[in-house]
Design a protein around this nucleic acid. Sequence first.
RNA 1: GGAGAGGUCGCAUAGUCCGGUCUAGUGCGCCAGUUUCGAAAACUGGUGUGUCGCAAGGCACCGAGGGUUCGAAUCCCUCCCUCUCCGCCA
Length: 448
Amino acid sequence: MLDIKFIRDNAEVVNKAITDKRVSLDLELLLQADERRRALMAETETLRATKNAVSKELPTLPEDQKKVKILEMKEVGDREMALQEDLRKTELEYQQLMLLVPNIPSPETPVGPDESGNIPWAYWSPELGGVDPKDTDKVAQIPTKFDFEIKDHVELGKSLDLIDLEKGTRTSGFRGYYLKNEAVLLQQGLMWLAMKKLQGKGFTLMIPPIKVKEFALTGAGFFPTGKAETYQIGNAAAFAEDAAKDPEFLAGTSEPSLLAYYADTILDEAQLPIQVCAATPCYRSEIGSYGKDTKGLYRVHEFMKVEQVVICKADINTADEWLEKLRAITEEIMQELKMPYRILNICTGDMGAGKYKMYDIETWMPSRNAFSETHSDSNLTDWQARRMGIKYRTKDGEVKHAFTLNNTAVASPRILIPILENYQQADGSVVVPEVLREYVGKDVITKK
RNA sequence: GGAGAGGUCGCAUAGUCCGGUCUAGUGCGCCAGUUUCGAAAACUGGUGUGUCGCAAGGCACCGAGGGUUCGAAUCCCUCCCUCUCCGCCA
């Protein structure tokens, strides 16, 4: 959400963001609703002021005058009622439109229609270290090389008894899966590794609810536009009667619950920055992705993710710094795992409506012969904080909306794809990344 | 699941029976001033959020939402939450 005053004064800038981000919203309708809303407010408030004033003097008046005033106020009350009904409708329309207004993208964000407009910002591989995207020769050397015919993670998972997709689908439905044996230890190890890393970086560890109320999803910006992506749940019996009553949702990330911890709160500036993280299951209906990435573990309905969330003061430089710090933390984990990856500066058309600036981290997946998204680092400025009511009091006593950021630390089983595929050997076994060996209990995963 | 108690402007409380000097009293905390070499204490004053407005100022908010009334913290209805006890259960 943006400040309505900012929207009124900068309609052109907002309209450009709407176009660049391919948001479906007619700003003119919002501005009109805003104007009507303010006119109705002024009118009802005048009537109320009259009523309040008369109510105060009424008990002191003699009986005959009292009767006259009461009749007068009855009329004023009727008029107020009529206006109020109008105001309520206008207010609702206004609020619904306000939720659709996107954040203004950063000056460094490329303008583009979709993922084709994203710009590689950095590459890294275990052999070469950091590589400048302009150094095309070196960039070409980044993907892992094999001198044998590679298997994809589905084949590896099957032959090493790590993944069972058939049984997963039978039990859970389309995109269901079972992880088994070392795959379980790999995933648990990754979660543990990430949480310990973040604890060392000053993050507060949390186990938050992932079953959340609507306000958490609206506050974080996932609703109303992302409703189709979200599972709605409820008590089975009650759900059968009336699904809409008191809805609960399974969040697609812990971000809503981590932020909602501070919802409708005025923090003290000294408490900032707040760094919190959580390892939680995540649920996504993937309803808009039918037929996309249907093979294997790339796109699944439920997965585990360690998420980093930062709430910092309302200063763009501070927030920019945090975006880079969060990126660096994720890179540190990736470098410990020794997997080739790249970082993309995400363009306007591919970033969410609420984002100011966003990096994706894409890991090399041999079977896809491509870098594919495994992490996502975002600066939302005050867009989420305004929806969620996260504020802080400055040293001067001023109350401001905070800035929020978030980044993936690790998400599994998707991350198992590059691990299994990049670490596979000619004999069909998979080497366990060094940092995960203590969790898996062995150096190499071989056939049972 | 059953029975009861309760949610008041940072915290703790008064007010609710019987609607109108409650634009919510008091204590604590916090801020400023007086005093002091400095501090403590004492005394004095101040002390929320949101929204509309260029401003003066208005309006809203006593868990949430409705209703009754000229007027609601106070009466009525619905919902949410917390606590205590009992029952059941991982």
